[in-house]
Design a protein around this nucleic acid. Sequence first.
DNA 1: ATTTCAATTTGGAATAGTTCTAAACTGTGT
DNA 2: ACACAGTTTAGAACTATTCCAAATTGAAAT
Lengths: 142, 142
Amino acid sequence: MAVSKKRKTLKVQEAGARLRAAGLRPTRQRVALAQLLGAGHRHVSAESLHQEALKAGMPVALATVYNTLNQFTEAGLLREVVVGSGRSYFDTNTDAHQHFYCEDDGSLVDIPGKTIEVAGVPVPPRGMTIERVEVVVRLKRA
Amino acid sequence: MAVSKKRKTLKVQEAGARLRAAGLRPTRQRVALAQLLGAGHRHVSAESLHQEALKAGMPVALATVYNTLNQFTEAGLLREVVVGSGRSYFDTNTDAHQHFYCEDDGSLVDIPGKTIEVAGVPVPPRGMTIERVEVVVRLKRA
DNA sequence: ATTTCAATTTGGAATAGTTCTAAACTGTGT
DNA sequence: ACACAGTTTAGAACTATTCCAAATTGAAAT
Ligand SMILES: [Mn+2]
Ligand SMILES: [Mn+2]
Ligand SMILES: [Zn+2]
Ligand SMILES: [Zn+2]
């Protein structure tokens, strides 16, 4: 029998609370997406999250998924990871950590926060501040 | 008076030689682009290089610029730097070095090769090899 | 020099990811 | 219940890039 994996989701109540805490109105759609994103560390694309919501019986427009992911990112609930032209992921883990990225299959794998050490980052040009030091370890099939 | 900056270009002869050395047929278009790219370290987008070629009186189709940049990259003459969804630059400096990237204006600035030190890169997942460790220092206007 | 043909170029169509628009809807305060 | 700013939505629009099939061309062979 084809056992369909069921991902653990947050309770509506908790998702709503997180949204309010971030200053976002807990609409039906935002709560649904927050529920899907809320449990565990995940890397999603707008398209993949959209599919997931539909399958979970929570219909949401793709435009809303984009809006929501951007709002969550601005609110600090998500982090955006850019790996290739046109391929950008949203990461539910907002702590400092890095990624393996495999160009062949587009997969993104976490490297725990304390693993990689970056030293010697120079002072930024006048009038600029460092927002983040991003390390992506690009992989190829051996 | 508006002094139009004239960028130094390679001689046709030398551009041709580089192409042959890389196993690429020195067509008129490829020679023209190689001339523009050949002198000094540069960061170009397909669109910016296309404009530059037109202004220099070397008409080339945009599709050809894309083809050529990709071929040059495969041949090891260029390196591709991905900074944001849809924004990818080609770098004439293929040596190991890193970049400052300013999201506000899309500018890319070199960080010399030996400046940043990355330690603790973990062993890649089974069946994969590390192709490159990419460090991008993301900046915001202060 | 002429011939030949695979490699290359080209303009336009096609694609993919994302944002925009303006009308419909809904959460929240009164 | 009412009002309205905030939100959602379908579809159009946009941007960067690749694909296509026809025309051109570099270089090798005669
Ligand atoms: Mn964004
Ligand atoms: Mn490419
Ligand atoms: Zn991650
Ligand atoms: Zn560079």
